[in-house]
């Protein structure tokens, strides 16, 4: 369980995973922020106001799945590095995961990197399909990797 070992269980993750119909439409954010902490930069980062905190700053963010465009602008704004964008509509059998990456070296597009699951276990090589690292992101690169579709909510980090 998350609070005992830092690993989000499938049951804990379920509420923040969009329904299959939304996943089928293309990129969408998954906000893995499951604790009432005083933090709200994701709310103002969203250009379409899809992220809401009903009870104020210490509430958990709630994502309106149908409003979210999967643009990923919230990813580098999350101090907890807890926001991912997944795209199930990538190519048949393959999906993409976009994530914050704050380790050196920053991988390059086309590079093969090691994919890690939520426990840091090596789950194989994956290809980097995009790296966004403008000065405005202040050294938090957003890296998109291509992964087998069934691994899309298992892979959560990379080692370049």
């Amino acid at each position: 369980m998350l609070k005992n070992d830092g690993i989000i269980s499938p049951e804990e993750l379920a509420p923040v995973i969009p329904p299959p119909a939304r996943l089928a439409k293309g990129p969408v954010a998954i906000i893995e922020c499951l604790q009432d902490i005083p933090c709200d930069p994701c709310v103002s980062a969203c250009p379409v106001k899809a992220i809401k905190m009903k009870e104020g700053i210490t509430d958990k963010p709630a994502l309106e799945f149908d409003t979210c465009t999967g643009c990923g602008l919230c990813i580098p704004k999350c101090p907890g590095l807890a926001i991912f964008v997944i795209n199930m509509k990538h190519t048949p059998g393959m999906a993409t995961v976009s994530m914050s990456h704050e380790l050196l070296p920053v991988p390059e597009k086309g590079q093969e990197v090691t994919a890690l699951d939520r426990t840091g276990k090596d789950v194989g090589k994956v290809k980097v399909v995009r790296v966004v690292n403008p000065p405005g992101y202040d050294r938090t690169a957003v890296v998109t990797i291509e992964v087998p579709a069934d691994q899309v909510n298992n892979i959560r980090a990379i080692r370049a």
Binding site: D5, G6, I8, Q35, L81, R118, T119, G120, A157
Partner: peptide, 23 residues
Amino acid sequence: MPTIGGYLVHASKIRRLGVPIYT
């Protein structure tokens, strides 16, 4: 303690980079 004291997003961040957490 039996549970992690700090913010759980920080815990997940190091756990997925391979750090075992011994509560």
